[in-house]
């Protein structure tokens, strides 16, 4: 097979792809990291967070939704895109209540890891400080909506994998928010289980499994030890070997 037929070019590096793969999938497999939040290898592309915005042959596109195709020249690591990504992360920070020092997920949180990766020193914008009550009604799982970034991974996992449709995104614009499908609106009144896929896909600290939060101390966690971009490249390399 000739290289050009089945390869895209990402920041001047040839990246092979299989038919049907998105730009993000192909790049990650080749160890070329493109930041992303709402994308997950086990779920269909969603395209809402826009962190994976890249330039494909001069046009802006979401790497997680656009299929790779021969002839694509893709820019990922440009100063402009880097700044956009940081601004998008800042928007997600001020939209919710993200107090990392008080969050069990700190160090394992993808939003935080991407903020580190984009050298975010401040959320920058005026804080919205929304009022979002915590749901601790379930015996094994806590939901802290303050940290929700509306990636809808829990919605997708519960509907498509668990077959329970326990979560839904409702509302419009800034009023959009996740709700729980039970008469009381509480997780404790659903048949949600800690074994559900939806209990394990939250990229931030919104859905937390109880009683394990500090099993690994702060400072020794996943993204404390390694930047999210470096981890992605290393994992791809190990898979190839």
């Amino acid at each position: 097979m000739s290289g050009t037929e089945t390869a895209i070019v990402v920041d001047e590096i040839p990246v092979p792809f299989k038919p049907g793969q998105t730009i993000l999938e192909a790049a990650l497999e080749a160890g070329v990291y493109i930041p992303h939040l709402c994308a997950h290898p086990e779920f269909a592309p969603h395209g809402s967070c826009k962190l994976c915005t890249v330039i494909v042959n001069g046009r802006n596109a979401s790497a997680c939704t656009l299929k790779a195709a021969a002839g694509q020249e893709i820019e990922v690591d440009t100063p402009d895109l880097h700044a956009y990504r940081r601004t998008l992360v800042q928007m997600l920070f001020v939209e919710g209540n993200h107090f990392c020092p008080g969050c069990e997920k700190s160090g394992n949180c993808q939003l935080q890891a991407l903020a580190y990766d984009s050298e975010m020193m401040t959320p920058h914008f005026v804080e919205f400080y929304p009022h979002r009550p915590v749901d601790a009604s379930h015996p094994d799982v806590l939901i802290d909506f303050n940290r929700c970034i509306q990636c809808e991974l829990c919605v997708r996992a519960s509907r498509d994998v668990d077959g329970k449709s326990i979560f839904a995104l409702v509302g419009r614009g800034m009023a959009s928010h996740i709700v729980v499908n039970s008469p009381s609106g509480k997780l404790g009144d659903t048949n949600f289980s800690v074994a559900d896929k939806a209990a394990h896909v939250c990229p931030v600290g919104a859905i937390l499994i109880k009683r394990v939060g500090y099993a690994v101390p702060i400072g020794e966690r996943r993204y404390d030890l390694e930047a999210i971009s470096e981890e992605a490249s290393r994992c791809a390399g190990e898979e190839v070997r």
């Binding site: 928007m91 005026v126 614009g173 800034m174």
Partner: peptide, 21 residues
Amino acid sequence: FAHESCGFCTPCRVGTTLMRD
């Protein structure tokens, strides 16, 4: 625009409100 943004993507959901403010 802030009123009519559907809220799906981050830049429009948050950005239109930031511009309005």
